[in-house]
């Protein structure tokens, strides 16, 4: 069960009218290394992982949904006031043909999200290493997105999200350590 707070995890301010950026931000919305994939990956893997890291996956998976909501806010703000013609000029003509200005879970190239992006192997190390890789890939994606806009307010929110990926990767690495260490623990029965 979740409790919803009707506010964003971090403020999203978009100052430049640049619908093109919405197309690129979609990579973090419905892309392979995006927030949707991350949230669903962690919240699904947590059932079959050793007890001491279940809570970590729950917490991070939940936070990914908060990030998803921030990305959605950015995309919405950038597209809600664009006419069909402006969307077409922004490279979103194909998107409009199918979705109007509705948001949709696809990547920057318009490929719809698929569960094949994520994995659940049932092996704690395999799953946690996938999670670390996902965080690093998401961090890189945020870097490229920051490079693509000169809107300092949008950059500010993206920098916050990028930093969270760094922290999450660190926590997952610690989780790996917890699982590895257990083997060396001296146990007296």
């Amino acid at each position: 069960m979740w409790i919803y707070e009707k506010k964003l995890q971090y403020p999203v301010r978009v100052s430049k009218c640049d619908p093109r950026m919405a197309k690129f931000l979609a990579e973090q919305y419905g892309g392979a290394d995006g927030e949707l994939a991350a949230a669903l990956r962690y919240l699904n893997q947590r059932y079959t992982i050793p007890d001491q890291v279940i809570g970590l996956l729950t917490d991070i998976g939940t936070e990914e949904f908060a990030h998803l909501e921030m990305i959605a806010t950015m995309i919405y703000k950038l597209t809600k006031d664009a006419t069909p013609k402006q969307l077409e000029e922004a490279g979103l003509g194909a998107h409009f043909a199918s979705h109007d200005s509705a948001l949709f879970y696809n990547n920057a190239a318009g490929v719809p999200w698929t569960a094949a992006y994520i994995q659940a192997k049932g092996d704690p190390l395999a799953d946690l290493y996938e999670d670390i890789a996902a965080e690093e890939k998401a961090r890189a994606t945020y870097q490229w997105l920051i490079d693509m806009t000169d809107d300092v307010d949008l950059q500010d929110s993206l920098k916050f999200l990028r930093e969270r990926e760094v922290v999450h990767a660190m926590r997952f690495k610690e989780a790996v350590q917890l699982i590895v260490d257990d083997r060396e623990q001296k146990k007296v029965y």
Binding site: R13, V14, S15, K16, C17, D18, P19, K77, L78, K80, D81, A82, T83, D151
Partner: peptide
């Protein structure tokens, strides 16, 4: 009539 925020980046519809 959709919500129009005070900080929307584009001229509102």
């Amino acid at each position: 009539y959709p919500f129009v925020g005070p900080f929307d980046p584009c001229p509102p519809i």
